[in-house]
């Protein structure tokens, strides 16, 4: 029977041995082959630019959380953006990850609205919600503007210069309109609750 081991069998054995070595004994050498490999991967360098571009949109999210999420998804700004929009927040990195990124900016804990927050019972599960949706004042960091905002528009001059239609100007005007709508809604709601 021993005579039946020919060259094809030897080649097959060699292939099996190589595959066994490659995928079972040294998984860390196969880039992206499995989740465990990517987790063990040294932290991908996340450029300050990427962090900034997320942070500009969501100033309330801490730098540490943004950096951590970008590291996990391979520096995809759009993936991180989408995640924040869907969940309303980013999970803070575990302590071990924070230690390697010194001086993370704290997420702004501005809450000085002067209104007492009575404890409210939790909403029923039928309410469409992903836990952690932040209100719009927090999401767009409007706490400071809220104090100076007057609904009559006395503090705000809406685009006095001729309206420009290039992309950058559109964005500036759009963002301004968004913020003003939120501030106005907030003031209206405050008035409604006082009644």
């Amino acid at each position: 029977m021993a005579g039946s081991i020919g060259i094809p069998q030897l080649i097959l054995c060699a292939i099996v041995a190589v595959l066994f070595y490659r995928y079972v004994l040294s998984p860390s050498q196969t880039p992206g082959a499995s989740g465990s490999a990517s987790r063990r991967r040294p932290r991908a360098a996340v450029s300050q630019n990427d962090i900034e571009s997320v942070r500009v949109m969501f100033p309330q999210i801490s730098v540490a959380a943004i950096r951590w999420d970008l590291e996990k998804n391979g520096s995809s700004v759009s993936a991180t953006t989408e995640k924040i929009l869907n969940d309303g927040f980013l999970p803070e990195p575990p302590a071990s990850a924070v230690r390697q990124t010194p001086s993370p900016l704290p997420s702004s804990p501005l809450g000085g609205t002067g209104l007492s927050q009575a404890p409210v019972p939790p909403l029923p599960s039928s309410v469409a919600t992903t836990l952690g949706h932040s209100d719009l004042i927090t999401r767009y960091s409007l706490h400071l503007r809220l104090e100076s905002y007057r609904p009559d528009g006395s503090t705000v001059q809406l685009s006095p210069s001729p309206k420009k239609n290039d992309k950058a100007s559109l964005f500036i005007r759009g963002r301004e309109r968004r913020d003003l709508m939120i501030l106005e809604a907030r003031k209206k709601m405050e008035a409604m609750l006082r009644r």
Binding site: G88, S126, T129, H133
Partner: peptide, 16 residues
Amino acid sequence: LKFTCEILHPNVYPDG
């Protein structure tokens, strides 16, 4: 279109 706030409405799925 997907809501990104808490909302209760017969025509909005629980995921918004």
